[in-house]
Design a protein around this nucleic acid. Structure first.
Lengths: 167, 167
DNA sequence: TTACGTGCAAAGGTTTTGCACTAGC
DNA sequence: GCTAGTGCAAAACCTTTGCACGTAA
């Protein structure tokens, strides 16, 4: 099974504003527990990765302390609700999460079907299209999700020397 | 739970080329069994809908004959592999399927977050973007998936008279 | 103090799999 | 007749939930 957790640094800013995270927790009248803090820390220490609940669970246990898997699930749900995390689905049978990058910009995903790495692509060129959709259909776009599936640069380069590989 | 199976007729052509379906089965050296034929028939009789395995199973049993759920799952997998069906994920906890519309054009989905209806939007304006991605990143796009989440025309209209509704 | 959060185990829901039986080709 | 396909039940997974206990504010 391809591992969709991997990310690729794209040279963009990866600063996590923890103060804003804490503010959001406060605004939602949610307590900052050690468990929630550790979940957030895992994401801040794994920039560009798209982690599943199980992966977060393992990382917290390995790096810090034991924690219940159910707690991880509940934390992820809460943090997504507070728009601190974003939930993404790469159709690999489990939900994955990343920091919500609203402060920087909305980005898309380039999923390599050969190695499974997920690059991020920062350009959001859909405004024109969203305007068109509203004019033509009366559909007000609130959000969008765009994934490109294909062959990444590294795999394309490797392909030249790697004859035995099947698509 | 919102029902994402519903579709909206968009005035487009919905002709299902069954001959092409059978040809694809033959090319893949796959047998045309009654069960597979029935699964295909369900999709051809439910144009514009995005059916889950369980829904297909119920429809086949209701309209035609008893069939095993595992067989439905295996048929959906096969038909997707043969590019007769396309698998879509609306994050409602189960995979959904629709006829692969490669012969007409690639389309996107407009998902209404209020009523759950899924419209299709025929314009594929991503060619420019895909070219850019290749030039900038060396990533060869093979396929893409674009979903817009928002409020459909009907819900927006209803909103005016329906004060008590929350988000 | 007290409502909220955690951990554990059990349950829930979807999808896959093993195996004996059946049926296209 | 062979090989591929089906049906059933069990298993595998991911995720949610009930409940008793713990703890942040």
């Amino acid at each position: 099974m391809i591992d969709y957790s991997q990310g690729i640094e794209n040279g963009g800013v990866r600063v996590v504003r923890l103060s804003s995270v804490y503010r959001k927790l406060e605004e939602g009248s949610k307590r900052l527990t050690p468990q929630r803090e550790l979940v957030i820390r895992i994401f801040s220490e794994h920039p560009g990765e798209h982690l599943s609940a199980e992966e977060v669970h393992q990382l917290v246990k390995k790096k810090f302390q034991d924690i219940g898997l159910a707690t991880v699930y509940r934390s992820l749900e809460l943090l997504t609700h507070l728009e601190i995390l974003t939930r993404i689905n790469f159709d690999d049978g489990r939900a994955r999460y990343e920091f919500n990058q609203e402060e920087t910009h909305r980005h898309h995903h380039l999923v390599c079907v050969r190695c499974g790495r997920v690059e991020e692509y920062g350009e959001d060129l859909l405004d024109t299209l969203e305007t068109r959709i509203f004019k033509e259909r009366g559909f007000t776009v609130l959000d969008h999700e765009l994934k490109f599936y294909g062959i990444c640069h590294a795999c394309a380069a490797k392909r030249g020397t790697d004859k035995g590989e099947k698509i």
